[in-house]
């Protein structure tokens, strides 16, 4: 990839500098970074390596140090019965796990798409000049500021079938004929979870989009206006390509978050097969069931899946950039 990308700052070595100075700066930078790296190792790398290690053992939560190495048994193993029948075991053939993977992917794709769309709309509105813009910008961030547990509980009550205000409003408007148990019903549970997530996270997307929008120089719009280009065309031909790098970063943040989604489902629809995500199911095995190692295997897979997703996203994103260039 040699083409120049717009918004990526590259720390290229400048000519005419002495190498020793360069080395000195690098060394200083390393020492400044060292505490951070150490911290990251302790809170991220070490736990991650440890749970990957656990996934290859038969450790249980009552005795964390007594696990024995079992190889890939927690992922996939087979046994041949005396009748000659072969039985496969392990996470990779566990239908509950694949159901959770599917739920998570569904949730991530739908919620992130909706949030990006709504976030962009909100950002465009906030980017326009109007009286009280600062106040509106602050106010729109409120859902993002509320802790997820609190907002999930709040929505849980609002979506409650008997006391919930949502049912009351819809009933009074005549949109539904009887109260709906949003979180309990297997058909609406996922929709309810996505609704709450979109409500909560749209402000975050809006903020990131807004930051992107403010980088777009105003004279481009002026030029477009003088040329008499239709605003919709301006949006798709000027605004969108220019804020694309910012948008891509925002989407990747959200995607990472959505793929490891836990708290919302845990509070709103615990134990519902329609909304169980990968994090929920691995926690269930880790803590509630006596299958700590099996749950560790699922956590490791969750990590691998997220890594693949992100790698794929970055790779596909670049391919797209190349296509644009060849036009």
């Amino acid at each position: 990839m040699t083409h120049p990308t717009t918004a990526v700052p590259v720390a290229a070595p400048k000519n005419g500098r002495e190498t020793s100075l360069e080395q000195q700066r690098l060394r200083a930078a390393f020492w400044f970074l060292a505490p951070m790296l150490l911290m990251l190792f302790c809170v991220a790398a070490w736990p991650l390596m440890r749970s990957i290690w656990f996934s290859f053992t038969d450790t249980s939560l009552t005795d964390l140090h007594g696990g024995k190495w079992v190889g890939f048994d927690n992922y996939l193993s087979y046994r041949q019965l005396s009748s000659g029948r072969v039985i496969w075991r392990g996470t990779l053939v566990d239908p509950a796990w694949w159901n959770a993977v599917w739920n998570t992917v569904k949730f991530a794709v739908v919620s992130v798409s909706l949030e990006t769309m709504f976030g962009l709309v909100v950002a465009l509105v906030l980017n326009a000049r109007f009286a009280g813009r600062g106040l509106v910008r602050a106010a729109i961030l409120i859902p993002w500021a509320i802790p997820t547990i609190v907002s999930a509980k709040m929505w849980g009550w609002m979506l409650n079938d008997q006391f919930g205000i949502i049912n009351d409003i819809l009933l009074n408007l005549g949109l539904i004929s009887e109260k709906i148990a949003w979180a309990a019903n297997l058909d609406t549970a996922m929709a309810a979870v996505i609704l709450v997530d979109v409500w909560k996270t749209t402000p975050f997307m809006a903020l990131l989009c807004l930051a992107g929008l403010q980088m777009v120089p105003g004279d481009i719009y002026e030029a477009a206006r003088i040329d008499g280009i239709h605003p919709v065309k301006v949006f798709f031909r000027v605004t969108l390509p220019l804020i694309r790098p910012a948008l891509m970063v925002a989407v990747i943040f959200r995607m990472l978050d959505a793929l490891r989604m836990f708290d919302l489902v845990y509070v709103l629809t615990p134990n519902s097969a329609a909304t169980k995500t990968m994090s929920i199911i691995s926690r269930e095995n880790l803590i509630e069931f006596d299958k700590f190692a099996y749950g560790s295997a699922q956590s490791s897979l969750l990590f691998a899946i997220i890594a693949i997703f992100v790698a794929l996203y970055i790779w596909l994103g670049k391919v797209d950039l190349g296509g644009e260039k060849s036009k």
Binding site: N160, Q162, K179, A181, A184, N185
Partner: peptide, 20 residues
Amino acid sequence: PPGVIAYQEEEARGVWQTGN
């Protein structure tokens, strides 16, 4: 209620104790 499949003890008591 259809929502009973999301009820725990306190939700059931909520409906009951309000006389419903």
